[in-house]
């Protein structure tokens, strides 16, 4: 058991904790953090597993850098969407707003309906 392998196992733990959070938590920002936790776990596992022999391997490190940028882009986009969603609907989860369904559909509900 080399120290690198320890990182890989830490990655395993992070992935499963993140998975639990991602599925169970309904608040969108926390869900997003759970996604980032899984992501960190995957990156840790990728680097740790590849350099288990003790010798550093630059390729997975570069892959992880690419992966981090992709994850940041996705996270940032998700935050913008979530903030905007909260701004419009006042909701922090994806549950359908039941109270609002009783009213006649708002003009925005079927935007395709209006001839453009």
């Amino acid at each position: 058991m080399t120290p690198s392998l320890l990182y890989a196992f830490a990655g395993v733990a992070l992935c499963s904790i993140g998975l639990f959070g991602f599925v169970r938590i309904r608040h969108l920002l926390r869900k997003l953090m759970a996604f980032n936790l899984i992501g960190s776990g995957v990156f840790l596992l990728m680097v740790g597993l590849a350099q288990r022999g003790g010798q550093p391997d630059p390729v997975p490190q570069a892959l992880v850098l690419t992966g981090i940028v992709v994850a940041i882009a996705a996270t940032a986009l998700a935050v913008v969407l979530i903030r905007r969603y909260y701004h419009l609907s006042g909701q922090t989860t994806l549950a359908e707003p039941r109270a609002k369904r009783a009213k006649p559909p708002a003009p925005t509900a079927n935007r395709e309906g209006s001839p453009e």
């Binding site: 996604f35 992501g39 990728m46 590849a50 996705a74 998700a78």
Partner: peptide, 24 residues
């Protein structure tokens, strides 16, 4: 869109985890 994004992100990570194991 948020629901779609969440599903897509989780799917990508599961795929990436498999890639990490294969590379290892």
């Amino acid at each position: 869109a948020i629901r779609y994004l969440m599903a897509a992100l989780l799917g990508s990570l599961a795929y990436l985890l498999g890639v990490a194991l294969i590379y290892g």
